[in-house]
Design a protein around this nucleic acid. Structure first.
Lengths: 139, 139
DNA sequence: TTCTATGCAAATAGTTTGCACTAAA
DNA sequence: TTTAGTGCAAACTATTTGCATAGAA
């Protein structure tokens, strides 16, 4: 694993985080995942490279460094995804599969919400769609 | 509490649910809340009318009957709100306060998402805005 | 009377934390 | 060498479940 721009190692350094094998492995697995992933799954993919407690601690650090985002879709466990493109999710209410979707909200919305909610500012938003995936529809 | 249309009692009956004092109380408190509320808070408001386990069981029944919606904003505990108006939330990332906002998404969006996600249908969506409330901004 | 709902306590499960040890810088 | 990160096990906390009892229909 080289230390170039855009690599896991580079991004850790840029964020001022120590580059440990555990962090390199976890962030790699997180970026390789194509949908939000749980700590349990990350640890499984790590195959012994780091344990659960370390996984949570690493994720905390990555979230602070804004390299990772925590997702609240599954109410029973937290899911995480690498930051990068701003996107949203479609969740199948039958099987639970999560698919990324490119649905951008009108820019003006944040500002309207800021006013109507009486907030100082709006920094971000989360949007999830719930429905039935094709696979489940066939059953 | 009379049993007329729109009252807690009527809605329970309409949903085919038994009308117990615990359910009447919990649903009343839920409807009186002006933002999503946790089971712990509901039990506190119940002042002994029902305990935590019952609270969860009642909420499960109410969710099945579509009288209540479960919200996944706070990652440490589940929040619940009475169904009714379709609205979204603005969450202060500093103090955690949740404010309802009337921000409707363009109708066309659901359909675009359905196609791009490869779903059979989209039934619902959740939208949360994150930012800083005025009170926290002053600190 | 019948069948479901409730209360209490015990069991689960995800997440966090203390502490001794290891390793990055 | 210094300071932060890790592993393990124990602690926490929200939520769920078993079972005997109470109560709605």
């Amino acid at each position: 694993m080289k230390d170039e721009k855009g690599t896991v190692g580079h991004d850790l350094k840029k964020a001022g985080l120590r580059m440990t094998p555990q962090r390199l492995a976890l962030l790699s697995h997180l970026r390789a995942a194509n949908s939000p992933i749980s700590v349990e799954e990350l640890v499984r993919k790590g195959k012994g490279a780091y344990d659960t407690a370390t996984g949570y601690r690493i994720l905390d650090a990555l979230i602070l460094a804004k390299l990772v985002r925590k997702i609240s879709i599954a109410s029973d466990r937290a899911l995480f995804e690498a930051t990068g493109t701003h996107h949203h999710h479609a969740v199948c209410t039958s099987c639970g599969i999560i698919v990324d979707v490119e649905a951008c909200l009108p820019k003006s919305l944040d500002d309207r919400v800021r006013v109507s909610a009486g907030f100082e500012r709006i920094d971000d938003h989360a949007l999830e769609f719930f429905g039935l995936c094709k696979r489940c529809a066939k059953k």
